[in-house]
Amino acid sequence: MSLQVKAVTQQFHGQTILDKLDLTFEPHTIYGLLGRNGAGKSTLLNIISNRIFASDGTVTLDDETLVDNDATLGRLYLMSEVNLYNERTKLNKLLTTTAQFYGDFDQAYAVKLAGQFDLDLNARFGKLSTGYRTIFKLIVALCVPADYIFLDEPVLGLDANHRELFYQALIDTYTERPRTFVISTHLIEEIANLLENVVILDQHKIVVSGGVPDVLAKAYTITGPETDVQQYTESLNVIGTDHLGGITAHYVYGDLPDDRPIPDTVQVEHLDLQKLFVNLTNATEVAHAN
């Protein structure tokens, strides 16, 4: 029981957008799909949901293809940044249409959420602001009976209050009916506590994939006088550095050596997800720039 992405490659006009991606989304798990602009997150989600075709590779759900397959496509829902709903259609009608195609759509919860978000379901989709379009799409995403929900930029245009409301609704619905959520967003700090697993895409490849605690357990900040820090982090996977006054910080991703004593002048702490992401993706950029 899982959604598997195998050796997915996407090329467009001679440019590689995704480069032989291998990935597994397990059931009943909340994933964060992180990456800088242009890393290929939306392309990956569009390929998974069969909205576009991969140049190479396969995507399967429980070993069944997702290409042109009603049975598997009906088990996932992608809330995308691109609006696929007809602008002239009223929201009520769109909910009914979604219920027709997905079956078992939680209409009562949709109406309840619309009330909490102050969303007028008699409005036409095209008349909504960016934020309210996002809210509507989120409501649909939280109420469809799909096993895999992909949220591409789920808080685009949402104010802080609405974002809080969404995160709470996500926790509530996940607790009540666990399923897989894959959240692609740039607001890492806000969702860090929600995530169980994380996938970081950079330069069209997966650079990190795993459980958030496991990933963060291998992410360190080593601070202290420059020479001591440099000595300690020599030959380790340093993904970034900072200097403030006489203090130097090296960001390391990977296991620390057991046989190397930590100098008294050096402090070792764990990185948070956002800091890890920034340094991992900056590091690659520097490497590529060189």
Binding site: S49, D68, D70, T97
Partner: peptide
């Protein structure tokens, strides 16, 4: 657009 959004194959 509407159908692929709602899990309907080509």
């Amino acid at each position: 657009k509407l159908f692929i959004q709602n899990g309907i194959s080509r």
